[in-house]
Amino acid sequence: MKKLIPILAAMAATAFISGCSSVNTVTRAENVGSPNIVNDRRITTDPGLEGNVSVIEVAEGQVSGNLAKIQVTLVNKTRRALTVNYLFEWRDLDGMQVSASSSTWKSLRLMGGEVRSISAVAPTPNAVDFMLKLQEP
């Protein structure tokens, strides 16, 4: 029993250290680029997830002439690595969902304190609105 205690303590310390790998970030003091920020509306059904991972900003742009692009910047507010699943859906001017054959849930691994952007391009020029779904696995 006496031999087991140090081993368990070492295991616990290792788990604690590996679970708390957080990311230090450096950026330009004042960004040159100025993103086109989108005012967003949020529906929260999992306060636990919202407490761990926050949306910092939502920016929009256009690619290939007439396709909307959305970029959402997330931050892991905890000191441990987290996995978040996310899915972008698109809607047209009539509010109808626009499908894409390869639109699927994706998995994102965020280290502790890490800020990361996820993005999606509209599947058709008619797709003007987006919905981002976030889920903790």
């Binding site: 894409a100 054959s101 390869s102 639109s103 699927t104 994706k106 993005s119 999606a120 391009v121």
Partner: peptide
């Protein structure tokens, strides 16, 4: 799905 989506984007 993910590969196709990323490459198309």
């Amino acid at each position: 799905n993910n590969a196709a989506n990323e490459l198309v984007t």
